[in-house]
Nucleic acid binder design. Structure first.
Lengths: 217, 217
DNA sequence: TACCTTGTTGATCGCACGATCAATTACCCC
DNA sequence: GGGGTAATTGATCGTGCGATCAACAAGGTA
């Protein structure tokens, strides 16, 4: 309590460029998760951190790249979280089952909504379109890596792990999108994706776990 | 050539309200298919039919409902086309195979793009959100009707045709979305969806047809 | 041909957005 | 504690959007 931090209106407490940039990124992230990527606005971000729009503008080349960066940050953070979550799994099969559970869980809804925004907004935001490609590739690399590990360990087979990874992600995204837009999350979706995965990988039915099929409407 | 249709600037040739409304709807449709739902603009639609923005505004309660109506018109027209396409099929199984082929074909890309827009824009456009629900239900009703017909004809079994219909549509949408955003359409996607459908319906592998699995990059 | 209905226009409002820049002022360093 | 660096501000520009309304004129009708 050495300095009382005077209440002078102008000149809010200065921060280092790194801190301010992080603060802006954080605000953009919160706004995106609450209102979608389209909700990220120069004035909105500025207001959230009690700062002038000009300052936010000063720290970003353009709003398009702030939106793209925000999307990229959220998605890559999610990949990291999931990877960490799967680390303790004793086998690749177990990890695959956990991955499906995790990706189809209702807690992923906010991020799925961001994917929908990104797919749509990417048409008018080149930077975002690039980021969407990067993050899709990142997810695909993660899943195909998992599949290759399973194949190497002799747990299952996959003639084309890359293709299978794309297919699994496509199915998951589609079911998630439907669930978020129209209906609540249905536990049966997990069963469906498990079945597909088991079929694609030559596993016996139930190898990836089971769930009581209850629709949560 | 009775009337030379004088080139007077003001007062463009009058049309009946019905004709003008249809013209506006057509323009909105073309714009949507070319530039997305977000491209539908008061001034844009007006310019396309050589008319004042005020006139377009006069025929629509708001742009939000024009966007919603346009989306609804495109999608329900698509359902109609597909239904017509499936009519000559000799069996439900054949129709189901044709349906999958049709929905995963590259010619559906423009409409898939509209779905992505609608999912994203629906968050800020209540009328559009309602229309999305209506059209999703319409598709689900169409597919589940097909499934019920197949069950009734003894061609296959389905404990819960409604659920299977949702799942198939979810998978198709997800794969289509991925294909449109990141990669070209892959013929292998059709094989995947066929496999899922066959599994869900207790059909033997290949019952819904086969396709050479060639990635069109 | 004169009238009257109504489809259509032009002008204009208000809003929200992204971006820019000189002026200001907080903070660090000597 | 004075000075210089640079983080921050306030004011302002330009754009594109949806919406409104009095005024105009096209075209059928008497």
């Amino acid at each position: 309590m050495s300095t009382v931090q005077s209440e002078s209106r102008p000149g809010a407490r200065r921060k280092s460029p790194a801190d301010r940039a992080a603060e802006i990124a954080g605000a953009a992230r919160e706004i995106a998760l609450a209102d979608g990527l389209a909700g990220i606005t120069l004035r909105g971000v500025a207001a959230r951190i009690r700062v002038t729009p000009a300052l936010v503008s000063h720290y970003q080349p353009s709003m398009d790249v702030l939106v793209a960066d925000t999307f990229g940050a959220v998605v890559s953070a999610e990949i990291g979280e999931v990877a960490e979550e799967l680390a303790p799994c004793p086998s690749t099969v177990a990890a695959l089952g956990a991955l499906i559970d995790s990706l189809l869980g209702p807690e992923r809804s906010p991020v799925t909504a961001l994917w929908l925004d990104a797919w749509s907004l990417g048409r008018r935001n080149p930077a975002l379109a690039v980021e969407v490609g990067v993050q899709m590739d990142a997810w695909q690399a993660f899943v195909s890596g998992l599949l290759r590990a399973g194949v190497a360990a002799g747990e299952f087979t996959a003639a084309d792990p890359d293709a299978v990874a794309w297919q699994l992600l496509g199915i998951i995204d589609g079911l998630n999108a439907h669930a978020i837009v129209r209906y609540g999350h249905a536990a049966s979706l997990r069963g469906l994706v498990r079945t597909v995965a088991e079929h694609e990988l030559g596993l016996v039915s139930g190898a990836l776990g089971t769930t009581t099929e209850i629709y949560l409407d």
